[in-house]
């Protein structure tokens, strides 16, 4: 009887331990949709997440060991590339697009401004191989990691095998990226009835729902679609967006609708980073829309906002800042791992 009781207590502790661990690594915020990512194919573990975090911050992924994922995705800017309209990579080469913010990736259906990437696991392959970003390839990366002192041990701990593979490397990076959940902004607290908007924020929220939420749908603040938001084409880039992937003229100038969470810190804005301030963005929607065959239907009716209303919308947008995400030490540089010699 005593033994059975001890066993039962043991089981309860184990289950609760797993629950705590699971909650810490990943959770679905209340009233959020089901994640797109299939966790059954890559169940999160603490060791895999930590390995992924090391890989995310380690410039070993690039050809000359100078560029890491973090180079263009800094935590304090919601993992975007602040101050750079177009991200720069190896040898100071300038890329073609603005590095997007990274958060709530488990809910994303596709990746990149044009949706070129169909699965989070495969996302790192693009910057690793891009000649203007990391200029390497996954095969070289795996061989390089294998030669380090650090990584065979970390892979053994995480995957039970010190032989490093592309699959395990990519899955580990996914594990870390999946933990990047941003759901604790003031907006979220208001939705949970634990805070209240100011009058200005409240008015901004009402205006936002009338004018912006067609594309920037709550709670992720994106409809995950590709839309032409009326930007004039930049002749230095000639970026046709989604059409490059589908070859369908109906997709010309369509770009993925980004989330607006943490938008206060993830400037500059748009796929080519042309707007530095939120007022520039609002002014574009009020008076800068370039009409074309593929213009989003949601923008066919002009958006009219007074100066005060613009300020109110911006006040609301600032409530989407999640400081617990921007400064969460679980997401920051893993100095305990990377400051050791590789």
């Amino acid at each position: 009887m005593k033994k059975s009781l001890l066993l039962l207590i043991g089981i309860c502790f184990t289950i609760s331990g797993f629950t705590i661990l699971k909650e810490k690594l990943f959770y679905v915020p209340k009233d959020w949709p089901k994640p797109e990512y299939d966790f059954s194919k890559n169940p999160l573990t603490h060791d895999k997440v930590e390995l992924g975090r090391a890989l995310f911050y380690d410039p070993v992924l690039s050809k000359d060991n100078t560029i890491s994922c973090n180079s263009c995705h800094s935590q304090f800017t919601a993992f975007a590339h602040v101050d750079h309209a177009l991200s720069h990579g190896i040898n100071n080469l300038i890329g073609n697009r603005n590095a997007p913010a990274l958060m709530n990736l488990a809910w994303q259906k596709s990746f990149m401004w044009d949706g070129a990437i169909n699965h989070l696991d495969m996302q790192p392959l693009a910057p690793i191989a891009n000649e203007k970003e990391m200029a390497s390839n996954i095969d070289s990366v795996v061989k390089k990691l294998q030669r380090t002192k650090l990584y065979p041990t970390l892979f053994l701990k995480a995957f039970g095998d010190s032989i490093i593979t592309g699959e395990h490397t990519l899955k580990a990076i996914s594990q870390f990226m999946l933990t990047l959940i941003s759901s604790n902004s003031k907006y979220d607290s208001v939705m949970r009835k634990k805070a209240t908007f100011t009058e200005q924020e409240k008015n901004g929220y009402t205006l936002f729902k009338l004018t912006c939420s067609g594309c920037h749908q709550e709670p992720l603040f994106t409809n995950q679609q590709f839309e032409n938001n009326g930007l004039t084409i930049d002749a230095t880039l000639n970026d046709i967006g989604r059409m490059k992937i589908t070859l369908d003229p109906n997709d010309s100038l369509n770009f993925k609708v980004p989330s607006l969470r943490n938008i206060e810190f993830s400037y500059p804005y748009m796929h080519d980073g042309r707007f530095k301030k939120l007022t520039d963005v609002l002014n574009h929607y009020i008076s800068g829309i370039q009409k074309s065959k593929t213009l989003s239907k949601k923008l066919e009716v002009p958006i009219l906002l007074s100066s005060n209303e613009k300020v109110d919308i911006i006040a609301f947008l600032l409530t989407l800042t999640d400081r617990s995400f921007l400064f969460n030490t679980d997401f920051s540089y893993p100095k305990e791992l990377l400051l050791k010699t590789n």
Binding site: N42, H119, L125, I138, D139, G166, E167, H168, K171
Partner: peptide
Amino acid sequence: GAMGGDLDPTKGMYWT
């Protein structure tokens, strides 16, 4: 997503 064995992207048969 990421697969192993012959489907591992290190095999050079996956677009980036």
